[in-house]
């Protein structure tokens, strides 16, 4: 719809200001490229029953259905999976590696969360 409006504008400009219309043409071409560039999807594959889905890579596709089909052809050509998840990359929020020290800090001083923190007499079995 936006593109149509721009086209009408362009036709008007073309007849009124020929020079200016050159720049406009460039913008239309750029828009067209942006429109035809398919979004990026991240692909997760469950390799066999009983295992988690695991990130295997990414691909471009116009929509979720196409992303699934492309993921099948790209990442499971040799029976590498029995289930696929596709997630549009822009919907993933990732932690930043720069603040990873501070970010994971809360876990650092909580040694009592590990079983090895506790001393149990040797005579006590099965614990």
């Amino acid at each position: 719809m936006k593109l149509n409006l721009i086209c009408i504008n362009f036709a008007f400009l073309y007849y009124s200001h020929k020079r200016l219309s050159q720049y406009y043409l460039t913008i239309i071409i750029l828009l067209n490229i942006m429109q035809t560039t398919w979004p990026l999807w991240e692909i997760f594959v469950r390799s066999k029953q009983g295992l988690y889905h695991k990130h295997v890579g990414s691909l471009h596709a116009a929509d979720a259905k196409m992303a699934l089909e492309n993921a099948r052809d790209l990442y499971t050509r040799r029976n590498e999976g029995i289930s696929i998840w596709v997630v549009e990359a822009q919907h993933i929020t990732a932690s930043s590696p720069d603040d990873s020290e501070a970010f994971y800090e809360p876990a650092n001083d909580k040694v009592y969360r590990h079983p090895t923190f506790y001393t149990i007499p040797e005579e006590v079995k099965n614990i």
Partner: peptide, 13 residues
């Protein structure tokens, strides 16, 4: 093909 696929997905959305 690229254009049509994109248009189709936009229409569906």
């Amino acid at each position: 093909v690229r254009e049509a696929a994109m248009a189709h997905s936009q229409k569906r959305a």
